[in-house]
């Protein structure tokens, strides 16, 4: 959020700003819970999909689509919109939930995820889904596409920004590093990558399968600004977005997250990477999320 001059701290204006901040944060928490509920609902209805990595980015998605990004659901092709590339395309349920919540398409469509004849593909398809800026699914391509979009902004002297959401396991793909190198070479200060650092990939913990650390150091060595935050702390996410606005390099936000965040029995487990909840688990998950919604309203 906005940085406050020290002299303002005891003033009535500061009090009003703080109240407003609190309201904004509460609303974004509500949006994130709605995204989580729809992730569970759509993956349950589909009978397949990736709940774990969708839940871990729900808070980030809420902050992006309902606070940070400049976009217009009534005009998905708006040339000056900020772009979002979900490079970890298997988290499509979270993207679709955010898009539906923003009004890009009817919420009822979420129940048709992965179903034949319906447009919500298992992984994002820009030709079929309004609001999807890039088709993804095979890991390692989204950052390169984001570089292309950011270059186009520079060419056209437009001030839109490009957000790319990367999985942590995904950065084992060599093409991510080719793109990271190109981004700093071409001084793409309008490119922001967000690393969903949930520390788990399909075969196990990332550091056991193929080590990624020291992540910050590696990206800094590739010419990026790096910030590390709690990817579930709405206030910290908003503050970070504000802080990085004037970075002169491409920025990586390492968002430390918990896979399956928000549903107790999915948190920190591998088993819900690519598996839907059973009926009983679905009921439990929804009731946990509804309880969290209730607590938010108290």
């Amino acid at each position: 959020m906005s940085s406050i001059m020290p002299s303002l701290i005891n003033s009535p204006t500061y009090f009003i700003i703080k109240m407003h901040e609190k309201a904004v944060i509460k609303e974004l928490k509500r949006k994130a819970l709605q995204i989580r509920k729809w992730v569970i609902e759509s993956v349950y209805q589909a009978g397949s999909g990736h709940p774990g990595g969708s839940l871990s980015i729900a808070d980030m998605m809420a902050c992006l689509y309902f606070h940070e990004m400049r976009h217009n659901p009534k005009n998905p092709a708006w040339e000056d919109r900020d772009r979002l590339v979900l490079s970890k395309g298997h988290a499509a349920p979270a993207l679709y939930a955010a898009l539906a919540l923003a009004g890009y398409f009817d919420v009822e469509e979420l129940k048709n995820l992965r179903k034949i004849g319906h447009f919500l593909q298992g992984h994002p398809c820009m030709k079929k889904v309004p609001g999807v800026d890039m088709s993804t699914g095979s890991l390692g391509h989204g950052l390169g596409a984001g570089v292309g979009m950011a270059l186009a902004a520079k060419l056209d002297k437009r001030d839109y920004r490009v957000f790319v959401i990367l999985g942590d396991g995904e950065i084992q793909e060599g093409s991510i590093w080719e793109a990271a190198n190109a981004a700093s070479h071409y001084k793409l200060d309008n490119l922001i990558a967000i690393l969903d650092r949930n520390k788990l990939q399909i075969d196990g913990p990332t550091e056991e399968i193929m080590h990624l650390e020291p992540i910050a150091w590696r990206w800094q060595a590739f010419g990026w600004e790096v910030v590390e935050i709690d990817g579930h702390d709405i206030e910290e996410i908003l503050h970070t977005f504000h802080e990085i606005r004037h970075n002169e390099k491409p920025t990586l936000i390492i968002a430390n997250t918990v896979k399956g965040k928000g549903v107790s029995f999915m948190e920190g487990t591998l088993s819900f990477h690519g598996k839907p909840p059973s009926e009983e688990q679905y009921v439990r998950a929804m009731s946990e999320l509804e309880q969290a919604e209730g607590e938010l309203n108290d």
Binding site: D133, H141, G144
Partner: peptide
């Protein structure tokens, strides 16, 4: 390979 991804990104922007 990344050249092709970058090309795609540029193409999405006209």
């Amino acid at each position: 390979a990344t050249m092709m991804d970058v090309a795609a990104g540029l193409a999405t922007c006209g």
